[in-house]
């Protein structure tokens, strides 16, 4: 399924042209996207010498390079936002990052790698698909390039997910990890549709969640997490509650997420 690409509007290259609330929301989104990609890249890289096979290790290394490259392509965009600390786009060390909280910790198993690849990577991809025709040109151009590379990330995550979900030795651990990631991935799209109204995205948050569920639902149905999902009128639904009380709309993080043992 592809997202609607019906945005017809003037192009914006300087974010100062946006009203202040839009500018701030856009900067927050870019930082959350860049930081999550940064930490995905770091976590992937940690497995580049310990994946199950040599080919899987090469894939982990390649995906790490891709994600870190995406982060470094996105961060400099923040130089155009006058309210953003200029040290952030210069990659100065920070006390606080806006990555998906699940990525705060190392991946302690290959199942964790695969679940994050298939779910967190795909959650970001869905958002970028909605930015392919963005009115904000710097995002639109980067989205196109990033999505080309993400195609193979999805293939990798989906193929490994099917294998691990079919194996009794890994399927329950995989499901437990998915149960932890899923609410964080769904919350990542937020509840505010300001960026959609401003034509920076072609789809609102609920639509992005629906696209994400339709993309990964068939995978989840093969896993031990299947009871958490249903299909209603051809659309995949998540039966769990989303932890909005612990959601930080600025960083897009679900705070105080349960640590992995």
């Amino acid at each position: 399924m592809t997202l609607s690409t019906t945005i017809i509007a003037n192009e914006v290259t300087d974010p100062q042209q946006f009203p202040e609330p839009t500018r701030r929301a856009l900067a927050d989104f870019l930082l959350a996207l860049a930081d999550t990609k940064r930490f995905l890249g770091i976590r992937y890289a940690e497995w580049s010498d310990s994946a199950p096979t040599l080919e899987a290790a090469i894939a982990a290394s390649a995906m790490a390079q891709d994600e870190l490259g995406h982060s470094r392509a996105l961060l400099p965009m923040l130089k155009d936002f006058s309210h953003v600390d200029p040290q952030i786009p210069d990659e100065a060390p920070r006390q606080k990052y806006s990555n998906v909280a699940f990525l705060d910790q190392h991946f302690d198993s290959w199942q964790t790698f695969v679940a994050a690849n298939a779910l967190i990577g795909t959650a970001l991809t869905i958002a970028l698909e909605a930015a392919r025709d963005s009115i904000y040109v710097p995002l639109k151009t980067r989205a196109g390039k990033i999505l080309e590379e993400e195609r193979f990330h999805w293939m990798h995550g989906a193929a490994w997910f099917k294998r691990l979900a079919a194996d009794d030795r890994t399927r329950f651990e995989l499901a437990a990890i998915c149960d932890e990631i899923f609410p964080q991935a769904l919350c990542w799209y937020g509840q505010d549709d300001l960026l959609t109204r401003e034509k920076i995205f072609s789809a609102d948050a609920d639509t992005l969640r629906a696209h994400f569920l339709n993309r990964v639902g068939p995978l989840m149905s093969m896993s031990a997490s299947a009871p958490m999902f249903s299909i209603e009128q051809g659309r995949w639904k998540y039966r769990g509650n989303l932890p909005w009380a612990r959601y930080d709309a600025t960083t897009r993080r679900v705070e105080n997420s349960r640590g992995r043992g």
Binding site: T53, L54, E55, A56, I58, A59, S61, A62, M63, F152, M155, H156, A158, A159, W160, R163
Partner: peptide, 17 residues
């Protein structure tokens, strides 16, 4: 060459390798 358990992973591994 690449070694893989499925055609899908063979495609990914070949592309990356």
């Amino acid at each position: 060459t690449v070694t893989a358990p499925s055609d899908e992973l063979a495609k990914v591994y070949a592309f990356n390798t």
